[in-house]
């Protein structure tokens, strides 16, 4: 309806007809959706629906069996993600991610984790190590900048007091935040989070919401897998629902919340019961 050119409806990621097969299992089946720039898009669905697999296809860890994944960068450049190698997705396309099972460098300190994330920038500044070994001033400046950037994200993620501790020593919630901070240190345009709220207590969950909102407000678009409906409904601008590898709903949180198909998928009820549930929901809505 609205013209495609306005900033608000600018598409950053477009997934078309994505399919992924593992042996005989069709984990993703002809799945298409779009994520808009400057928004938080949530990808939800029951366990085993294929959400993580979609992430792995987008971030290059799996090669999709079929489909096209297009990323529009800010300068107007367009990249086909399924053609890039896994590390190029971050380096060239500016897509960063976190993992459902946290993957930190647990033997490195929190600060070192954030410095590793700035590898490509520092590598260039160090003249691929040679200028760095010679102690070039430009490199020294780059190092100071990288530490400042790390400090910025440590403060945002409320980890500044733990900067010199090993990442493996942090609490679960802190590890989740560190993983997000680490992804942000790569300077991404699109941040993909795989169940960031899983295993957090309600208080941690609230801080996380605030962190995610502020990331969005600073101009990074988010794609978020979430299980916890309260988190999804509260912070996402757009929700896509996946079940058995297929899209069953797509729209605003309000729209999705009342979609009978979604309710059926989450509660596992027969089709004829859906209407009943819908009525109950309307009656008891907040």
């Amino acid at each position: 309806m609205a013209p495609e050119t306005t900033a608000m409806t600018d598409t950053i990621l477009k997934v078309e007809h994505l399919s992924m097969k593992f042996g005989g299992l069709m984990a993703i089946n002809d799945f298409s959706f779009e994520a808009k720039r400057g928004e938080i898009t949530a990808l939800i669905g029951p366990n085993g629906a294929g959400k993580t697999t979609v992430f792995n296809c987008i971030t290059g860890f799996y090669k999709p069996t079929m489909g096209m994944i297009t990323l529009h960068r800010r300068g107007g450049r367009t990249l086909l993600l399924e053609r890039l190698k896994d590390f190029e997705i971050n380096k060239k396309a500016g897509v960063a991610r976190t993992f459902q099972n946290i993957r930190l460098f647990s033997g490195l300190t929190v600060l070192e984790n954030l410095l590793v994330a700035q590898h490509n920038a520092l590598m260039r500044a160090s003249g691929y190590t040679i200028l760095g070994l010679l102690g070039a001033p430009a490199y020294k400046r780059a190092v100071a900048d990288s530490i400042e950037k790390a400090r910025y994200w440590l403060e945002k993620a409320d980890l500044i007091d733990r900067a010199d501790d090993p990442a493996g020593d942090l609490s679960y919630g802190a590890q989740r935040r560190l993983e997000i901070a680490r992804a942000m240190c790569t300077g991404p345009e699109l941040l993909c989070l795989d169940e960031p709220a899983a295993g957090l207590n309600p208080k941690e969950s609230l801080t996380l919401n605030a962190l995610l909102r502020s990331i969005r407000d600073e101009g990074t678009s988010l794609l978020l897998i979430e299980h916890d409906m309260s988190v999804v409904m509260e912070i996402s601008d757009h929700v896509v629902v996946l079940e058995y590898g297929q899209k069953i709903s797509d729209g605003t949180p309000e729209h999705v919340k009342t979609d009978p198909k979604v309710i059926a998928a989450y509660l596992g009820v027969e089709d004829d019961e859906v209407e009943e549930i819908e009525e109950q929901l309307d009656g008891g809505a907040v």
């Binding site: 896994d86 993957r103 460098f105 033997g107 790569t186």
Partner: peptide, 14 residues
Amino acid sequence: EALREDEIACRSLG
């Protein structure tokens, strides 16, 4: 060292 700790995470960081 990051590679020793977690190769997949390294690749996700470019």
